[in-house]
């Protein structure tokens, strides 16, 4: 082959997306356009934050991982609560490269020398808890302590919903929920709630807020991308888009099954009617969204609010 691309991923070996990634590699290599791919799965080379840096420096060429606002505060647009409403919105994003959501990623990453290839929306994030909050479908004191990740957006959203929030490293969240140090965490798609908590019999409530998205991107070092032939670019772009779509679709399909499995484990699942969710979203959008104008830029915020 003319080029060997180093591809790095962060999801655990057993995660279904890794099978899709393997197919993507086979598709690119099988197209006989002179590309070989060397795959470093399961966070061997480091976290998502670290890999974006590695891709900028060109030490890895291609990455499948989440991106974080440490690299650029504007990336925090992805943490806007209730930005993505449901399965339909997810399909709009993953099937249309020209969706505003994708264009923002493309524009931001381009300024860091990164070529955005495709977006995977693995699902929508709710809360895992060991007890039922006082006011699960509304806003008000929930008498429940949840771990939030270090994002002002996530924290103020959960504060607004009435939770006591606390910061904790993800590695310590499982034992902390298990020991009762915290009552739960806003953290997880239903699938992650199952694999990370329910499968080990920790936790008993899933609140399907669907407040945030769980995203991964497939992206490339810009310089390396520019050096590829048109034919090679086309093969890679096609394969990456297809993979992202498949990962998102398969994850969506798994959601129903997973919800059933959570119930089998005896979990209570708090779902929201469209009206209930719209009511929460309205308050959150009014109180929280304007606060990020200075971080992600009024221009971006307007484009997303459309």
């Amino acid at each position: 082959a003319d080029v060997t691309l180093k591809l790095a991923g962060t999801l655990p070996e057993a995660h279904a997306s890794n099978r899709v990634l393997e197919d993507m590699i086979a598709e690119i290599e099988g197209a006989n356009v002179g590309i070989d791919i060397k795959f470093f799965p399961a966070g061997q080379l480091g976290s998502g934050e670290e890999l974006l840096d590695d891709a900028k420096f060109g030490n890895v060429d291609m990455v499948h991982a989440s991106v974080y606002a440490v690299a650029d505060p504007r990336i925090d647009f992805q943490s806007l609560p209730f930005l993505v409403g449901g399965a339909d919105d997810i399909r709009k994003i993953t099937q249309n490269p020209n969706a505003e959501y994708n264009k923002l990623y493309t524009e931001i990453l381009e300024q860091h020398g990164i070529k955005h290839l495709s977006t995977v929306v693995e699902g929508l994030i709710g809360a895992v808890a060991t007890k039922m909050p006082a006011n699960p479908r509304g806003i008000g004191n929930q008498k429940t302590t949840l771990r939030v990740w270090s994002s002002q957006l996530a924290k103020s959203t959960m504060d607004l919903l009435g939770y006591q929030t606390t910061t904790m490293n993800w590695a310590e969240v499982f034992p902390a929920v298990q020991a009762g140090t915290i009552d739960g965490a806003i953290c997880c798609t239903p699938e992650l709630a199952y694999t990370a908590f329910a499968a080990s019999d920790v936790g008993s409530v899933y609140l399907d807020y669907a407040a945030f998205t769980e995203n991964q991107l497939i992206y490339m070092n810009g310089g390396k991308w520019a050096k590829l032939s048109e034919k090679q670019k086309e093969v890679i772009q096609t394969a990456a888009s297809k993979a992202a779509r498949r990962m998102s679709d398969e994850a969506l399909e798994r959601t129903d099954v997973i919800m059933g499995k959570l119930k089998e484990k005896g979990w209570e699942i708090v779902t929201f009617t469209p009206e209930e969710r719209a009511a929460i979203k309205a308050v959150v959008k009014e109180k929280i969204w304007p606060s990020v104008a200075d971080v992600i830029g009024q221009d971006f915020l307007d484009r997303l609010s459309k």
Binding site: G46, E50, D54, N59, N169, A171, E172
Partner: peptide
């Protein structure tokens, strides 16, 4: 075949955790 600018930053990333 590595970009040496990333060397020391790698150490920072790896150790940039509370654990």
């Amino acid at each position: 075949d590595h970009n040496i600018s990333a060397f020391m930053g790698t150490g920072h990333w790896k150790m940039n955790t509370i654990i």
